[in-house]
C-alpha cells in the first residue's frame, strides 16, 4: 500500500505502564498522548483491554510493539500481524510502531531486540517485510532505531543511511529514540551528530527519551532511569530540526511515581522550546 500520509501529532507524552493505570483512569489530562506496548493488549479480554479502552477515551494513543521482528530472515508471523491489526482497528491509534531489529528465527523467539547487519540483502528483506506489514495493517509502519551492542563485518552502510533508504523504498516513517542514538554512538564509535545529520526528518513522527546504564565497556539501553544530560542535549539538536512530532519519556524498568515522569515531560517541553528559541536566534 502507499504510505505517504501519516498526520503529525505535536505533543508530549509518556509510555503508559500498569503502575500508573489508576492515575490515567481517574485524573484529568496529564499529558498530550500516551504510548502503550502493543503486545500487552493483544489479549482476549479482561482488565488490559478495559484499561486501554478507557484511556483511549481520554488520550490519543500510539501503539508500540516489540515482537514484529521486521528483520527476521524467515519472514513475518502472519498471526501476529492479524492480532496487531485487530488491536489497531479497536484502538484507532496515532500510528503503529516497532523496532528495526529481529527477535527470533526458525521458531525461536529471544524476546530481545537483536541487531541487523546493514547490507543490501537486509535492506531488500526488511523492505519486503515492511510492505507486507503495511498491507496487513492497512497503515504505514513507524520504525524505531534500536540500541545495539554489536556491529557486523558485512555492514555496508550506516544505520541512518539504512533507515533513510527504508523510508524511501517502503514509505514507512520513523520513531527516533534519542537515547538509542547516544548509546549506539558510544558503543560503536560514531558521532551522534552525524546520525542526526543523516536522518530524513520529514519521515520522523515520534521521539523517545530515556536513560541508560554503564555496562562492561558498553552503554546498556536499560530504560530504568531518568533521561541524562547528554541525551537531553542531543534531543535539543533533534528538536530544532524535526518539526512538530510526538515526544515522550519512555521508562520500562524501575518505574518511578508518575510525578517523576511528568516532571521529565516538563523538561522535554522546556528543552523543546529552548531549541526553537536557539534556532530562531
Amino acid at each position: 500500500m502507499s504510505s505517504e500520509i501519516l498526520p503529525r501529532f505535536d505533543g508530549f507524552g509518556v509510555g503508559l505502564r500498569p503502575q500508573h493505570y489508576p492515575a490515567f483512569l481517574e485524573q484529568g489530562a496529564l499529558v498530550d498522548f500516551v504510548e502503550v506496548i502493543s503486545e500487552n493488549f493483544m489479549v482476549r479480554g479482561g482488565r488490559p483491554l478495559y484499561v486501554l479502552d478507557a484511556v483511549r477515551e481520554r488520550y490519543p494513543v500510539a501503539l508500540h510493539g516489540v515482537s514484529m521482528s521486521i528483520g527476521s530472515a524467515d519472514g513475518l508471523k502472519m498471526d501476529y500481524l492479524r492480532r496487531l491489526k485487530s488491536l489497531a482497528d479497536r484502538t484507532r491509534p496515532l500510528w503503529v510502531s516497532d523496532h528495526l531489529c529481529w527477535t527470533g528465527v526458525e521458531g525461536f523467539n529471544s524476546h530481545d531486540l537483536l541487531p541487523l547487519p546493514y547490507t543490501e540483502e537486509t535492506l531488500e528483506l526488511v523492505s519486503a517485510n515492511i510492505r507486507t506489514a503495511q498491507d496487513v495493517l492497512e497503515r504505514p509502519l513507524v520504525l524505531e532505531n534500536p540500541s545495539s551492542y554489536l556491529t557486523f563485518a558485512d555492514d555496508e552502510m550506516t544505520e541512518w543511511d539504512f533507515l533513510g533508504e527504508l523510508t524511501r523504498r517502503t514509505g514507512c516513517f520513523l520513531l527516533l529514540d534519542v537515547n538509542n542514538i547516544y548509546v549506539s554512538g558510544s558503543n560503536h564509535g560514531f558521532d551522534p551528530s552525524d546520525y542526526v545529520d543523516g536522518v530524513p526528518f520529514d519521515r520522523v513522527r515520534q521521539i523517545h527519551l530515556a536513560g541508560h546504564s554503564q555496562g562492561k565497556g558498553l552503554l546498556i539501553d536499560t530504560h530504568d532511569q531518568a533521561v541524562p544530560d547528554p541525551v537531553w542535549d542531543l534531543y535539543e539538536t533533534v528538536a530544532a530540526r524535526v518539526g512538530p512530532v510526538a515526544a515522550m519519556i519512555e521508562r520500562d524498568d524501575d518505574i518511578p511515581p508518575l510525578e517523576e515522569l511528568l516532571a521529565e515531560v516538563q523538561i522535554a517541553r522546556a528543552r523543546h522550546q529552548a531549541s526553537h528559541r536557539a534556532h530562531a536566534a
Binding site: 529471544s110 537483536l114 554489536l150 557486523f152 563485518a153 555496562g215 562492561k216 565497556g217
Partner: peptide, 14 residues
C-alpha cells in the same frame, strides 16, 4: 567471525 571488532562484550549482553 560475523562481527566487527571484539564482539565478546556485545555477545555477552545479548
Amino acid at each position: 567471525g560475523a562481527y566487527r571488532g571484539d564482539a565478546a562484550a556485545g555477545l555477552a549482553v545479548y
